[in-house]
Nucleic acid binder design. Structure first.
Length: 254
DNA sequence: ATGGCCAATTTTATTGGA
């Protein structure tokens, strides 16, 4: 079972890239973030032509998540408890085979101390409560764009980013609270070194300079980590024409 | 120290991203 996560930064703008990537990599499941389109505008037919069914939870312009899978996608849940009527489309959960997949696009937070930062921490707290209600004895895979680095190994210049957005202690604690439920950072099971990133800023030409952050993660249950045989960041995809600012990340399970 | 790029909509600016 190969499960991928990718913040595509608009599924319509990225469609040729996404379809080519699916054909080349053949994951069983692809979790998308920042689809940036309403469900009836999602390019569903193009995914289906490649043999993928799709469940979407989108909105106009911002946010938006979707799960594409070769097999049946069952028990789909959109949003989470505590969401308001017009809540951001940031989480979709479903069963695929014997895996429970939870696809998230965590709030960015803009700047430490800002109203959006407070919203980020509140949202992550609710995500924790939502997950606490799930069956964590199952093979549960929580993946997506968390907009938080786990520790300084995930940051190209930790001193520059000290207590800044994506790296602040409260954000890392909110992420740790998810791990404390019994979820494991699958990437770190296989790689302990620094310098492995999943996002590079367009504005600073971060990719060309090697300035990135690791903010896209797989947090998986005991049963899932036991089955996990590897996690790979597709850095090459980030270097192609008209890329997303995030690279796809692929977790493989026996 | 700052800004750079990219996408969508409110489009010839603005907002948000991280």
């Amino acid at each position: 079972m190969k499960i991928a996560t990718w913040n595509v930064n608009s599924v319509r703008a990225r469609l040729p890239r996404v379809l080519a990537w699916l054909e080349a990599n053949q994951p069983d499941v692809l979790c998308l973030q920042e689809t940036k389109c309403e469900d009836d505008k999602f390019p569903r037919a193009e995914f289906e032509e490649l043999g993928y069914s799709v469940e979407t939870y989108g909105q106009k312009t911002y946010n938006g998540v979707a799960i594409a899978a070769r097999g049946a996608i069952e028990d789909v849940e959109r949003g989470m408890p505590g969401d308001l009527e017009d809540a951001d489309a940031r989480v979709i959960a479903a069963a695929v085979g014997d895996f429970l997949v939870v696809d998230v696009y965590v709030v960015n937070g803009q700047e430490v101390g800002s109203p959006k930062y407070a919203y980020k921490l509140e949202w992550m707290g609710r995500l924790r409560d939502y997950l606490a209600g799930m069956d964590l004895s199952e093979k549960l895979v929580l993946c997506g764009d968390f907009n938080v680095t786990v520790d300084d190994r995930d940051v190209y210049d930790p001193d520059k980013w000290r207590e800044k957005i994506l790296c602040s202690t409260p954000e890392r604690q909110a992420l740790q609270a998810l791990s404390d439920l019994g979820l494991h950072d699958a990437f770190r099971r296989f790689e302990e070194g620094a310098g492995h990133y999943t996002w590079w800023d367009f504005r600073t030409r971060g990719f060309q300079r090697g300035n990135g952050l690791r903010i896209d993660h797989f947090l998986v249950s005991d049963a899932a980590i036991e089955a996990c045989t590897g996690v790979a960041i597709d850095v090459e995809e980030r270097g192609r024409e008209k890329p997303s600012d995030h690279a796809p990340v692929v977790a493989t399970f026996a």
